[in-house]
């Protein structure tokens, strides 16, 4: 049996450190998702408004966020912020900002799609009952869209967790960065650590994302 560098994982606190790194990744994505949901609903509602300017601006925002690789967005916020505001913001905060911008765009588009798929007579009948447009949204439209949104949001969370792997490129210490540190520190004693440690990181991501994927698929089938 060749040395697969698995022993490193059981040395000292290495495994705990990796899990801690995964914790950071999960924390970033969860924060971003929680912020994205209300902001996304707001964006979605704005996107179906009749005012041309609002529609143009929201559309442009959505298209730009969608077409740019997330890493480019991270670079813009992380490196660009220093330039624009004269003050650095941390990698972690940059990540939360970018993930929220991205999550809001994705969620906004989902909400928009859900709203326009609700038949028009639903709006008309609620107006006929004398509800204001705010009340119509709050009591009629939003509850109906939520069911469609939940599985899609769960999917979005898994995509975010996967994308957190990018934040090491702007200096955030998350699971992959911790892995690099462990491999570096044990270069002499365990030269093959890269295999075992990266395999572990690979599996950690899988363990974090797979159940969510299954849940999303289940919900989609149940409510779809």
């Amino acid at each position: 049996m060749p040395d697969l560098g698995l022993d490193v994982l059981f040395k000292g606190k290495n495994m705990m450190r990796l899990l801690g790194g995964l914790g950071t990744a999960l924390k970033i994505s969860l924060t971003a998702v929680l912020l994205s949901i209300p902001l996304g609903i707001l964006l979605g509602i704005l996107m179906v408004r009749k005012e041309l300017v609002i529609r143009a601006i929201t559309r442009l925002y959505l298209e730009f966020i969608r077409i740019m690789p997330q890493l480019v967005l991270l670079f813009i916020v992380f490196f660009g912020s220093a330039r624009a505001f004269g003050s650095d913001i941390s990698g972690e905060l940059s990540s939360v900002i970018v993930f929220t911008l991205w999550g809001t765009a994705e969620m906004g588009d989902l909400v928009r799609g859900a709203i326009i798929s609700i038949p028009k007579h639903q709006y008309e009948s609620s107006e006929a009952l004398g509800l204001t447009s705010a009340q119509t949204y709050f009591y009629i439209i939003i509850p109906q869209t939520v069911r469609r949104l939940i599985p899609l949001s769960v999917n979005l969370i898994t995509r975010m967790i996967k994308t957190t792997s990018l934040v090491l490129m702007i200096g955030v210490v998350e699971v992959t960065k911790v892995a690099q540190q462990i491999i570096e520190a044990n270069r002499m004693t365990s030269p093959n650590a890269a295999f075992g440690v990266f395999l572990t990181v690979f599996l950690l991501y899988f363990i974090a994302c797979w159940p969510l994927s299954l849940l999303a698929r289940y919900l989609e089938r149940k409510w779809g």
Binding site: T158, K162, T176, A179, F198, V201, F202, W210
Partner: peptide, 12 residues
């Protein structure tokens, strides 16, 4: 493949 990030796949 679908439940792991490309970056980690590349590192591995």
């Amino acid at each position: 493949s679908r439940n792991t990030p490309l970056l980690v796949q590349l590192f591995f």
